[in-house]
Design a protein around this nucleic acid. Structure first.
Lengths: 199, 199, 199, 199
DNA sequence: GATGAATGAGGCTTCATTCAT
DNA sequence: TATGAATGAAGCCTCATTCAT
């Protein structure tokens, strides 16, 4: 993540900005390299100086976005000490991100799923870091006795992530407004009532 | 709807069948006219004898599918007289269609949304007919006093359609199996408890 | 080989002729698809209607040439009954081909050697047929007692082919004139004196 | 030849070394300037500080190699005083060079032949010097009465060079091992028996 | 002496579409 | 009713080369 800070050539920055901009208007497939170059104000060839191919560019844009998302979530979680509040923070901030950053949401929830090399890209590392953050909270909850021990923590994590994504997908697909707080609270309640150890 | 009955030239039929077949394997964008012609066993040129362009072909295939769907739902509803059972029939049959006819579901829920001229196509007429069927039931419910009057019936209709689609979208996107009856019952309960006039 | 006779679309023919023409002036790598299309008087796209890619086009041109070459050699050989004369005919005609058909010679002796998929192409089949013709003569010679039995016939065949190619390569590379009869006689003498069974 | 001694900037040296290295693995056409710069550990731009273009770089690398070759041959010849032994030394050392220095051999025997400006490059000067060395020996032989006077010395020289190259080309093209001494002796015998004045 | 950013022409290939027969 | 030939615009990508700093 440190390399984001390094100084980058202007052309590279302009290209990534151009793609980000275009992704707000069309799907990745519909965007051409010529369009990217035109919007960036550079030549098409320059794209291939900085990126292996068009998909690599997408992954790097995605990675940059994801780093921001992770930072946001982490910052938000660090303000809480109580494990359940930290869990809520994770969910709420994630939903907020999906609700406000449509481009990011659409890419991560839809576009990359059909790109086979995504799972070997550096952007996918972010997915793993992100998912690890949730797992850590859940493990804390288990060791504190707040969450029942008889469920595999990774199953719990994946179910939770699935529920969040599921709930947000609709808004993402059709640009619907989402009641962020409502969704987050509902999710937490559902989850917490289902996973607390039975007294 | 009438033209389904009309006798159709064999080439036209083969082309539509070919597209239907291919849609089971790939998204519409990924299918080429060459592929369609090859699978249909005709030449590419013939496609343009019967269809304005590639999208027009999709719309006609979709229309045909949709006519079948509407027929199914109508038949099912006609077996019930009680308004709430008719409503349930509508929901249940729709979910069943989404669960079993993946191609139809994917096209109607996802693919056509990005095609600008869809909403002026004849296939879109089917959407309106379908949506009108639901509206009719709801209006019946209102006039029978089963459904509260203080909600706009079109708002009700759209919310309901949205809820159904929302619930099915996930399974469609990632080829997950769906618990049809469970989903339908849940939906009806949610809906009915939320919309019945307060006693 | 029969398919050469089938009627072919004019565009296809023009494209193959264009490549043949261009190969007389430049190496295959230096020839662009745009050039081919321009010379053929068709659009670039048409090339890919008839050929998988640029290399496939080369292989088909080569195949056609090779079929002519094989026919020539076969015809010439069929005029002789004596095995040694048939061997001489093979060598002499091959040298003659290399000496007169520069394009064919350069492709087969040089260009295709660096193309990895050549050996799985149909053009390579011609190489095998051609090489089989020589092997047959040699086997006849062995069974007639004219050629010693203690040398593996395939080794003999490959050595002989290597000698021919070796001897012709120079002329091919630098467009030198070749003393066809001299070369062929020299080769046959060398070969026959080395391979006749010692009395 | 003097510039070999001159002190050269490190970047220039690294670039030439890089190309030499890469030529061991691929043909000149297949090598990109980006590759050269990467292997040299410099930027692409620097190449154009020291070399007019990519071909100029090749010629300078070739020139340097050729100077080494000429030096080797000259040193070897200077050890002999007898004209025929000097001639043998020239042939033997040349064959040895072709057999051991594949890169040099491939460039000089094949690659440069298709580059039109080679014959006006300084590298071509080396060819002339090298060829002059042979001519000198032959002239010595003639004036000593060892070689018949009735053949034009330049024709003799070119035939001889052609024979050597011809004999080595095969090994160079297909990376075959060469029996250096055998080849050299054979060549000398063939030549000497053909060119000695008839007694 | 060297870098780093950027260019631009051109490469091969794909694909929906048209039209004469 | 159907074919078969051909188009042309556009797609992604490569590479030698230039120039300000």
């Amino acid at each position: 993540m440190a390399q984001t800070a390094r100084k980058q050539p202007p052309g590279r920055i302009k290209i990534m900005q151009a793609l980000r901009l275009l992704l707000e208007q069309e799907g990745f497939d519909a965007i051409t390299t010529a369009e990217i170059a035109r919007v960036a104000g550079v030549t098409e060839g320059l794209i291939y100086k900085y990126f292996k191919d068009k998909r690599d560019l997408l992954y790097q844009v995605l990675e940059e976005m994801f780093e921001g998302v992770i930072l946001r979530i982490r910052t938000r979680m660090d303000r809480e000490t109580d494990t359940f509040l930290r869990l809520y923070a994770f969910i709420d901030e994630t939903v907020l991100v999906y609700a406000t950053q449509h481009v990011f949401a659409r890419i991560i929830l839809i576009e990359v799923r059909s790109l086979p090399d995504f799972f070997t890209s550096r952007a996918y590392e972010c997915v793993r870091i992100y998912s690890r953050m949730l797992q850590n909270v859940l493990e804390d909850g288990i060791s504190e006795g707040l969450i029942r021990k008889d469920i595999d923590v990774r199953f719990l994590r994946d179910t939770l992530l699935g529920a969040i994504e599921h709930t947000c997908l609709w808004g993402v697909l059709f640009h619907r407004e989402m009641d962020v707080q409502g969704v987050a609270e509902q999710l937490l309640r559902f989850v917490s009532e289902g996973i607390r150890p039975s007294v």
